[in-house]
Amino acid sequence: MDVTLDDVTVEVAGTALVRRLNLAVGAGEVVGLVGPNGSGKSTALRCIYRALRPTTGTVLLDGSDISGLSLRDSARSVAAVTQDGSPELDFTVAEIVELGRYPHHRGGAALGERERDVCVEAMRRVDVTHLAHRGVLSLSGGERQRVLIARALAQEPAVLVLDEPTNHLDVRHQVELLSFLRTCGLTVVVALHDLNLAAAACDRLAVLREGAVVDDGPPSDVLTPDLVGRTFGVRPDIVRHPVTGVPQLVYHLGPDDPIPGGTHP
């Protein structure tokens, strides 16, 4: 299933958080949104999973306006893992993951065998099977993050939207998650701060600045010292990964001359 943001603008209290944003994500493609804090990444993602309605413009799924779908129907197609989605009630891990079946399941009946199998597989994918009977509030931040990813996978979506999914994850689980995204066959739109992880995981990167896309293309085309300097205010050296050949950024820690036009902390 493809996703298109067509001339999307979101205004809140008279301020444009994204402005005339255009982005097309093909079926099965993994596209990363990168950019400095406040560049509009999370706002763009919220429009896809319908937490926000664009002020102007349209979000399309396979060419159809998503606003024309019921919330249940859109949740059957689009699953999201947000930055602020940590559970507040102490359900077990298994119960949290089972909530992912809600868009497909009507009434108060127990889940069927197939639905339980879907949840078990989702937990296995993100290495939380051994936590199934633990209360979610007893878990570490990284463990909770993996539970939320399992819940999204249990929805069996065609489109997976992830907002900083590697937050709190240790190195092993970061690598396993991003490896899964590359091979899962879903349409994935993911916001990432780590440009090296973004380059390794994504087919394309869309660089956002001040609510607009300033560049869009394969990581090897997008991640240049000049663009990174203008967008993030630091100028890295770019090297190629010895196995995959994807660009990797090497930063210099210490005082540097300001980069004209760059975004500075």
Score class of each variant (00 low, 15 high):
L148S: 04
S179Q: 14
L139D: 01
D226P: 08
A198H: 15
V147Y: 09
G40A: 10
P255S: 07
S140D: 13
A198V: 05
D215K: 01
H133R: 12
G100P: 05
L45P: 02
T244G: 11
R46H: 14
G229I: 01
R53N: 09
E11S: 14
D221N: 11
D65G: 02
E98R: 14
F232I: 06
H105L: 03
T4Y: 14
R209V: 04
D221W: 02
T244E: 13
A152E: 03
E115H: 06
L99C: 15
V34C: 14
D256H: 03
A16V: 12
S220R: 14
T9E: 04
P260V: 00
A16P: 10
G254N: 10
L208I: 00
G100E: 12
S70V: 12
S138E: 15
L131K: 13
L227T: 09
L89Q: 00
A110Y: 12
G211W: 08
L178W: 10
D127N: 07
T82F: 06
G217V: 15
E210H: 10
N22P: 04
V250A: 09
P260I: 00
P242T: 02
A154E: 04
P260M: 08
E143N: 01
R76N: 08
H168I: 00
E95Y: 05
A109T: 00
L139N: 02
K41H: 03
V136E: 03
L169W: 12
R182M: 00
T231N: 06
N196K: 11
